[in-house]
């Protein structure tokens, strides 16, 4: 006969004995059995709930509250224990799935951009940020654009076959050749565009130099040209110094020393102080009025500066490359370093 006293008694007994039973379970299966015994259909709590109807209605509410308190407290213990057991059982199961964490990872293969292309892109981007655009031109070129339009006289030694590679194409008298610099695009670009002109020209160039640690018959240059109504040598200096600071670091010191190129006057070489020594970085100068005349610009109306730099040289300076041939042999051990 379930009396009020009996129900209270049983609940108190359960509340004091069940936590130890729950804590004593060692597997989720044991816990499930224990849970059935404590809160299941035949558990004292279920019995108490079923007996609630027979209780004096005045007491029923208090007893109901007591049942809920005991049931909630035990369910909390059970859930907590279940979490503990689930995690420890998962951990035990994962031990069999362990990986030697000192093994190398399974890395996807990622290719590299050639360092020459990287340096070209970087140089180009610096000038694009200064408001220049980009043009590219033919690698097989006429001697007119490669030499004559650039004020290089017919008798200049660079035209000789000891310096320039010619190809068997077209008018032999004119001379069709592998361009020896990117400068022909100065003339081509000015012929095709009215001033103002702000352009850089990256590309391959060719010289009859046998391969050795510092020479290659094929290498790369980036040419630059700025022509406007008010371009001065001061613009050349400031702009190229800015380039050097962007490319080599903002504390880079530069100096301009007079030099000679037929297509610029005055001409200069820019040297930069890098890694403890002065390096010849590029050639530059104010566009020679003869070049303006050759492309149909009025040299009394516009002025301009031009520059050209060797990309391999820039890459060698930047990356500590002593032998140019490393850039040319496509050795997998080298290319993978071009990250």
């Amino acid at each position: 006969m379930n009396t009020l006293m009996d129900i209270r008694q049983e609940l108190q007994t359960l509340a004091s004995s069940a936590p130890a039973i729950i804590a004593a379970t060692t597997t989720t299966a044991e816990l499930a059995d224990a849970e059935a015994a404590i809160t299941g259909k035949r558990s004292p709590i279920a019995m108490a709930r079923r007996g609630l109807g027979k209780i004096d209605p005045e007491q029923r509410r208090d007893v109901g509250i007591l049942i809920k308190q005991v049931a909630d407290a035990l369910q909390h213990d059970i859930d907590q224990r279940r979490n503990e057991l689930t995690e420890s059982e998962e951990t035990a199961a994962l031990a069999a799935d362990a990986v030697d964490m000192t093994l190398p990872g399974r890395a996807p293969v990622v290719g590299t951009h050639h360092v020459i292309q990287q340096v070209i892109d970087e140089i180009v981007d610096i000038f694009v940020a200064l408001g220049f655009t980009v043009a590219r031109g033919p690698e097989i070129e006429t001697s007119f654009y490669n030499f004559t339009a650039l004020n290089i006289p017919d008798t200049h030694p660079s035209r000789l076959e000891s310096d320039t590679m010619y190809v068997d194409f077209g008018d032999a008298d004119e001379g069709v050749l592998l361009r020896t610099h990117t400068s022909p695009m100065q003339a081509r670009y000015m012929e095709q565009h009215d001033p103002p002109v702000y352009v850089v020209v990256p590309g391959k160039v060719f010289r009859a130099d046998p391969l050795d640690p510092t020479h290659s018959p094929v290498f790369h240059q980036v040419e630059g040209l700025a022509v406007d109504t008010n371009i001065t040598f001061g613009d050349l200096k400031g702009t190229l110094e800015m380039f050097a600071k962007q490319f080599l670091g903002k504390d880079t010191e530069v100096k301009f020393i007079p030099h000679y190129f037929p297509f610029t006057e005055p001409s200069a070489e820019m040297h930069a102080f890098s890694n403890g020594r002065w390096l010849e970085l590029l050639g530059c100068g104010m566009v020679n009025p003869a070049v303006f005349e050759n492309v149909g610009y009025d040299p009394s109306a516009v002025t301009g500066f031009a520059f050209g730099m060797g990309v391999e040289r820039m890459a060698m300076v930047r990356h500590g490359i002593q032998d140019l041939r490393h850039l040319l042999e496509n050795d997998a051990r080298v290319l993978r370093q071009f990250v």
């Binding site: 200064l130 408001g131 702009t239």
Partner: peptide
């Protein structure tokens, strides 16, 4: 000769 940075016409 003092330097001055040009500002191009873009593109």
């Amino acid at each position: 000769i003092p330097g001055r940075v040009v500002s191009g016409t873009g593109g």
